[in-house]
């Protein structure tokens, strides 16, 4: 498998840490070198949050910059737009269609950009959108939004589906497992 750089972007509290942990585990079990860079502390409090997952024969830098990401998994639309320049030309964006207003928009000092999806479609990228929040609610918990998106991501991976399911089993707490497995399937079969 070739080197892969994935960014998980969203809003603090949306569950990106679990998603990155799961991906890291998946790649390690596939025999690859892995680095996962997480965000803790102040930036988690409802701020813009970005997590990097990189794998390959040997990974050095844990971070991803302009033009280095193969895939961006975005938990929120504005965040997909924000981190777009990090994507390689022709790269993949998997975007949850949920929108969360940032404080400057709530207080009226800024406007939430319109037509994010339309504009993204015109870029040199492959865009896949999913209403992951609704699908997660369908299986019983909005906290499974991350697993829905991972299900979508699994379709673009060289790693077989059963290995992904194994990684879900190894990462998700036991009592939430069946719910998350259903969420994963919904994403995978979109």
């Amino acid at each position: 498998m070739k080197d892969l750089a994935i960014m998980i972007v969203g809003v603090g509290g949306q569950g990106s840490l679990l998603a990155s942990k799961l991906l890291g585990r998946l790649f390690m079990d596939a025999g690859l070198d892995v680095k996962v860079s997480e965000v803790h502390g102040m930036s988690q409090r409802g701020g813009s949050v970005v997590t990097y997952v990189k794998c390959g024969k040997k990974v050095y830098s844990p971070i991803i910059e302009e033009g280095q990401a193969d895939i961006i998994i975005s938990f929120e639309q504005l965040e997909a737009a924000r981190w777009l320049p990090c994507l390689k030309k022709g790269g993949i964006i998997i975007m949850n269609t949920q929108t969360i207003m940032p404080m400057p928009v709530i207080t009226g000092r800024a406007a939430y950009p319109e037509d994010i999806q339309e504009k993204l479609k015109e870029c040199d990228i492959r865009l896949f959108t999913a209403d992951a929040l609704s699908l997660a609610k369908q299986v019983g918990s909005e906290k499974a939004t991350n697993t829905v998106l991972l299900g979508v991501a699994a379709r673009f991976s060289d790693i077989p589906k059963d290995k992904w399911i194994e990684a879900v089993k190894n990462t998700v707490p036991q009592k939430l497992l069946s719910l998350n497995l259903r969420a994963f399937e919904l994403g995978y079969n979109l």
Binding site: V11, G46, Q68, L78, R82, P85, K88, D124
Partner: peptide
């Protein structure tokens, strides 16, 4: 210099951390 996708977005509103 490494270059990524050219962004059609400008002046995106920041998302600072907030009290929960």
């Amino acid at each position: 210099k490494s270059e990524g996708v050219t962004s059609p977005f400008s002046d995106l509103p920041p998302r600072p951390p907030v009290l929960c």
